[in-house]
Nucleic acid binder design. Structure first.
Length: 303
DNA sequence: ATGCATGAGCC
DNA sequence: GCTCATGCATA
C-alpha cells in the first residue's frame, strides 16, 4: 500500500516515474490520444511545408469563420494585456501552500511511443481488483483505489455534498486546510476546491489533493459532532491584475489553429499573434492553457 | 465556474 | 519554452 512517496515537502506525485499520468485503466486510450499528436522533433524541417499548408487551411477556416460570424471586427484592442502585476506578492499571506513540485516528465514536443508500455513501471498498478475495501490509511497513504478515476469521481461528489451539509463554502475549505497542520500543506484557493469537486484538474492533481481534502472533511465533521454534543459551550457564533479577454472571433481562430497544431513553434505563435492582433505571449499562454485543459479529468474521456 | 496568468522545475 | 499546479479576476 502507499506506493507513492506522497509525503515530502508536499505531495510529490510520481517521484521518479519517467512519465505517465494515467495509471492503468485508460492508459491505453490516453496513450493513443497522445500518439495521435503530431510534432515529432524532426518535423520542423521535413514538415515545414506541410505545416504551412495546415496552417493556411486553419487560417482559411478561421477567416471564413470570422467573416461569417458577424461583420464585427475587433471590438477592441485585444493586445491590451497588462502584465500590470505589481511585483508585490500581495496575497502571499496565506499563499505559501504547496509549492509546485512537478516531476515533470517531458515529452518535449515529441511523444514517446513508450507511452503504451510505460505502465510496466507503474507504481500502484499491482492490485486494482479489490477496489471496494479501500483500507486507505486515511493518513496519506495512497492505495490503489485512490488512483481509480471512478473512485476519485465518487469521492469528489461525496466531498461536495458533505461540505455543503457542513455549511462550508469552497473558499472556506481552501483556507481551512492551513489549519490542518499537515506538513507541506497550506491553503488553497476557491478555484482549486471548485476544480477538485468538478473534476477539472489533472488526474494526478486529483490524487494528490484527495487525501488532504479527505483529512479536512473528517476533521470538520468531527468538530461539528463535538458542537452538537456540547451546544452550550460553543453557541453563537498595488494594482490588480487585469484579465485579458480574447474576443470570440479571435478565440475561434485560435481553436482552429489548435485543432491542426496544438503545439505551434515560437515562429508560428508569432505569426498567429500578428494575424489576430494579439500579443505573442497571450497566444502562447492560450495554447498552454488549452493543452492543459485537454488533460483535465473531465475531458479525459476514457472511462 | 472558468479564463488568462504566474512561477517552479526541467530540458 | 514546456508542463503542471494553482490563483486572481470576472462572467
Amino acid at each position: 500500500m502507499m506506493s507513492m512517496n506522497s509525503k515530502q515537502p508536499h505531495f510529490a506525485m510520481h517521484p521518479t516515474l519517467p512519465e505517465h499520468k494515467y495509471p492503468s485503466l485508460h492508459s491505453s486510450s490516453e496513450a493513443i490520444r497522445r500518439a495521435c499528436l503530431p510534432t515529432p522533433p524532426l518535423q520542423s524541417n521535413l514538415f515545414a511545408s506541410l505545416d504551412e499548408t495546415l496552417l493556411a487551411r486553419a487560417e482559411a477556416l478561421a477567416a471564413v469563420d470570422i467573416a461569417v460570424s458577424q461583420g464585427k471586427s475587433h471590438p477592441f484592442k485585444p493586445d491590451a494585456t497588462y502584465h500590470t502585476m505589481n511585483s508585490v506578492p500581495c496575497t502571499s499571506t496565506s499563499t505559501v501552500p504547496l509549492a509546485h513540485h512537478h516531476h515533470h516528465h517531458h515529452h518535449h514536443q515529441a511523444l514517446e511511443p513508450g507511452d503504451l508500455l510505460d505502465h510496466i513501471s507503474s507504481p500502484s498498478l499491482a492490485l486494482m481488483a479489490g477496489a471496494g475495501g479501500a483500507g486507505a490509511a486515511g493518513g496519506g497513504g495512497v492505495c490503489d483505489s485512490d488512483t481509480d478515476p471512478r473512485e476519485l469521481e465518487a469521492f469528489a461528489e461525496r466531498f461536495k455534498q458533505r461540505r455543503i451539509k457542513l455549511g462550508v463554502t469552497q473558499a472556506d475549505v481552501g483556507s481551512a486546510l492551513a489549519n490542518l497542520k499537515i506538513p507541506g500543506v497550506g491553503s488553497l484557493s476557491q478555484s482549486t476546491i471548485c476544480r477538485f469537486e468538478s473534476l477539472t484538474l489533472s488526474h494526478n492533481n486529483m490524487i494528490a489533493l484527495k487525501p488532504i481534502l479527505q483529512a479536512w472533511l473528517e476533521e470538520a465533521e468531527g468538530a461539528q459532532r463535538e458542537k452538537m454534543n456540547k451546544p452550550e459551550l460553543f453557541n453563537g457564533g498595488e494594482k490588480k491584475r487585469k484579465r485579458t479577454s480574447i474576443a470570440a472571433p479571435e478565440k475561434r481562430s485560435l481553436e482552429a489553429y489548435f485543432a491542426v497544431q496544438p503545439r505551434p513553434s515560437s515562429e508560428k505563435i508569432a505569426a498567429i499573434a500578428e494575424k489576430l492582433d494579439l500579443k505573442k505571449n497571450v497566444v502562447r499562454v492560450w495554447f498552454c492553457n488549452q493543452r492543459q485543459k485537454q488533460k483535465r479529468m473531465k475531458f479525459s474521456a476514457t472511462y
